[in-house]
């Protein structure tokens, strides 16, 4: 795909297609070793070694989820405490109004619910999703990334990026094909 025109528009980056996850991980490792930093990888399923190969930082999402769970659990307990001990106390078999053992299931459920909400919404927020448009969609074969192909993208913003050289570098990593990504 490396045509040579005189006046070419700016591009978003260069993307390489691989046939196996092993090739992708190896390519990611070598890209990182070659000094590229603005690199992203696409795969139909999670590949754990990729995080390490691309030196992706661990997300801070767990803290958000923990806080969400904490808020859920507290609000669940307070709801029960308020309704059964303050607002409308009923004597059930002589048990105390604030019967913590019977409040535990709801507190637990609310903890799980709020933690799950914070996980889901926090993940979307930090990923920048939903995202109807992304330049990689301009590469026709990119839809295979959700089927059986593996892609490695080097963005043009990378300080080391050079249109010809980077494409050549990706070819050298045993890519099946290399495409330019229009912005």
């Amino acid at each position: 795909m490396a045509h040579t025109e005189q006046e070419r528009p700016e591009i978003y980056g260069v993307i390489a297609e691989f046939e196996t996850p092993t090739e992708l991980v190896e390519a990611a490792r070598r890209t990182r070793a070659a000094g590229y930093r603005h690199v992203d990888a696409f795969s139909p399923y999670p590949i754990e070694e990729l995080n390490e190969a691309l030196a992706i930082r661990r997300t801070r999402l767990p803290i958000l989820i923990f806080l969400g769970g904490l808020i859920g659990g507290l609000s669940g307990y307070l709801l029960l405490y308020y309704t059964s001990a303050i607002d409308y106390p009923i004597n059930v078999g002589g048990r105390p109004f604030n019967s913590w053992p019977s409040f535990v299931p709801i507190t637990f459920e609310m903890t799980v619910l709020f933690a799950a909400f914070s996980a889901f919404l926090g993940m979307l927020g930090r990923n920048g999703l939903p995202r109807p448009y992304h330049p990689v969609f301009n590469v026709p074969r990119f839809e295979l990334a959700s089927r059986d192909r593996f892609f490695l993208l080097i963005e043009a913003t990378d300080p080391k990026f050079d249109r010809e050289e980077t494409a050549g570098f990706l070819w050298g990593l045993n890519a099946r094909e290399v495409f330019e990504v229009e912005p």
Binding site: G93, R95, P101, S102, V104, P105
Partner: peptide
């Protein structure tokens, strides 16, 4: 525990 506590 909860069932036995509730059943009393």
């Amino acid at each position: 525990f909860l069932l036995i506590w509730s059943g009393n």
